[in-house]
């Protein structure tokens, strides 16, 4: 199952208005992405870690998420120090490591991890449905909101369909290997999911028409903007402004 592991919980960040969280997350990510100074980036990392602590998320889960993302960054560590031109600090046979390369990869590692920690603490602590609902308050076009709702709703259905077909393959002794048979099987599996999904989408729309759909989703559960939302929002935004001014 595709799960929103972090959205359940009881902490200041879980209870914060998703609208505030989206604004802060956007503002924070953009600031960190453009800052190039080490000291302000370290401060940003501390802020992100602080947010994680406040959100009371399980450290073990967070680390496993970070490991996955950092495996991509590890590839950059293998490439950039050798390929970026600059002052050479170490030579290893025909390869030479440049100071600029190391500096650059380190910056990237720092920025990526900071942004990921902050988004985990801010966005993943809301359910996807709440985030989509919050987006609709920011004048995101209706159709895009509907797309978000439907895609997330049917993600679960289609994923379990895939699991089901995959189990059927396994029961018949299918083993994925590097050959045409494997690729044909996977292509047919995806084709089958596409065919079923296509039919499903027609049924879904018909069902919507039966229930009187006229291009609008009615939301029953509204956000209430509390004083604590306002205060936390102001504090977080001023931290980010401080961060940007300082760099």
């Amino acid at each position: 199952m595709i799960k929103e592991k972090f959205s359940e919980g009881d902490s200041l960040l879980h209870n914060l208005d998703p609208r505030i969280k989206i604004i802060v997350a956007l503002f924070f990510s953009v600031s960190v992405a453009v800052i190039d100074k080490y000291n302000s980036l370290f401060f940003a990392l501390l802020l992100a870690i602080f947010l994680i602590i406040v959100s009371k998320l399980k450290v073990k889960e967070i680390i496993s998420r970070l490991l996955v993302v950092n495996s991509f960054i590890f590839l950059l560590w293998l490439m950039l120090p050798f390929t970026l031109p600059g002052e050479i600090i170490y030579t290893l046979g025909s390869l030479s490591i440049s100071r600029e390369g190391i500096h650059y990869v380190f910056l990237i590692t720092l920025k990526s991890n900071t942004i990921i920690l902050a988004t985990l603490a801010l966005l993943s602590t809301s359910s996807i449905y709440n985030l989509i609902h919050a987006l609709s308050h920011f004048h995101v076009p209706d159709k895009l909101i509907h797309l978000f709702f439907f895609t997330f709703r049917y993600l679960q259905t289609i994923h379990s369909e895939y699991i089901r077909l995959n189990n059927a393959l396994k029961i018949r002794g299918f083993k994925a290997q590097t050959n045409f048979h494997t690729y044909r099987t996977f292509a047919y599996l995806i084709g089958m999911i596409l065919v079923r999904s296509y039919d499903r989408s027609k049924r879904v729309y018909d069902a919507m028409l039966c229930r009187g759909f006229k291009g609008k989703f009615w939301i029953l559960d509204h956000f209430t903007f509390k004083q604590s939302d306002f205060v936390s929002g102001i504090i977080m935004i001023s931290c980010i402004i401080g961060l940007v001014l300082w760099s």
């Binding site: 709703r153 590097t178 999904s197």
Partner: peptide, 23 residues
């Protein structure tokens, strides 16, 4: 509007396809 469910459901198919690892 009537195409939205179709686009969304195909979008989730491609999301799921991106989870499939092929040797």
């Amino acid at each position: 509007y009537k195409e939205v469910p179709k686009v969304a459901i195909l979008s989730s198919v491609f999301f799921v396809a991106s989870l499939i690892h092929v040797p």
